[in-house]
Amino acid sequence: MAGLSDAASATQSPNATPKVVVDGVDKVYESDRQRVEALADVNFSVSEGEFVCLVGPSGCGKTTLFRTIAGLEAPTGGEIRLDGEAVTGPGTDRGMVFQEYGLFPWRTVRENVAFGLEEQGVDGAERARRVEEMLDLVGLGEFADAYPKELSGGMKQRVGIARALAVAPEILLADEPFGSVDAQTRDMLHEELLRIWSETGKTVLFVTHDVEEAVKLSDRVVVMAADPGRVREVVDVDVDRPRERTDPAFAEYVDRVRGLIGE
C-alpha cells in the first residue's frame, strides 16, 4: 500500500485544484399536492485525487445529489462543475458504481466491462487489453466468462467498479456500492477500493449511510442533514491509513459524525 501515502499527501496540499464543485445546488420536486425540497443550497468541492464520502440520514438527499452529479437528474438551481465545466447530462467522464450493481445480465463479466469501451469506439485489441487490465485490477480475471447470475454480490460489485473505471473517467462516483453485501465481504471490498484508489489516483465521491464506512475510507466526510437536504458540516478525517476501528482516534471521528447526524 505504498501509493496510499502519496495520494493522501497530494490531496492535503492547500493549492489542490477543485475537481468537482457542487455550487448552490437546489432540487425541488413539485407535484399538484406537495412540494418537496430534496436539496437546498448544497455547496462543497472535491479536490483532484481526494476520497470524499457523503453521509446522512435517509431523506437527506444524498442519492438525489449523487444522481445530479451523475447527470441523471438536473438541479432546479445552482450547478455542478467537473473540471470547471457544468454537468448537463450523463457521461463517461464520471464512472458510476451503483448499489444494485446495474450489470447487464446478458453480458459476461468481460462483456460488461467492455460495454463503455465499445461506446467509445475503442478497437478490438486495445479494448481486450483494457478489459484484461481492469479485471486484473479487481481480481476477477478467471471469472471473465461468467454471467452476472453466477457471481456473488461482492464479485458483482467488483465488476461494477471495473466497468466504471474501464472508460477512464475523471472521477469515480459510488452510491452505497457495498450496501448489499455482508459485513465480512464489505471489509475486503473496502481494502480493495482503497488499493484501487491509490493505484489509479482517481478522485472518488462515495455515498453511504454507514458512518464507520465513511470514516474508514475518506479524506473528508460531507455530513448532510434532512428536511431540506443540506450540508451540515464537512469533517476532515485525520487518521493514518490503514485505519482500524479499534483505534481511539477512529472511534472519535465516528462519534463526532454520528453526533452531527443525530444518531
Binding site: G139, A146, K149, S152, G154, S180, D182, Q184, E191
Partner: peptide, 28 residues
C-alpha cells in the same frame, strides 16, 4: 487480496452473503 475464494470454480458462487444466497435461490 484479490478473490474471496481463489480456488472456487468460476461457475459457482464463491461467497456467502445476501447476494450469494439470492443467486442460489434463483438457481433452485
Amino acid at each position: 487480496m484479490s478473490l474471496e475464494t481463489g480456488s472456487a470454480s468460476p461457475r459457482t458462487t464463491a461467497e456467502g452473503g445476501s447476494g450469494g444466497v439470492a443467486a442460489a435461490d434463483s438457481d433452485d
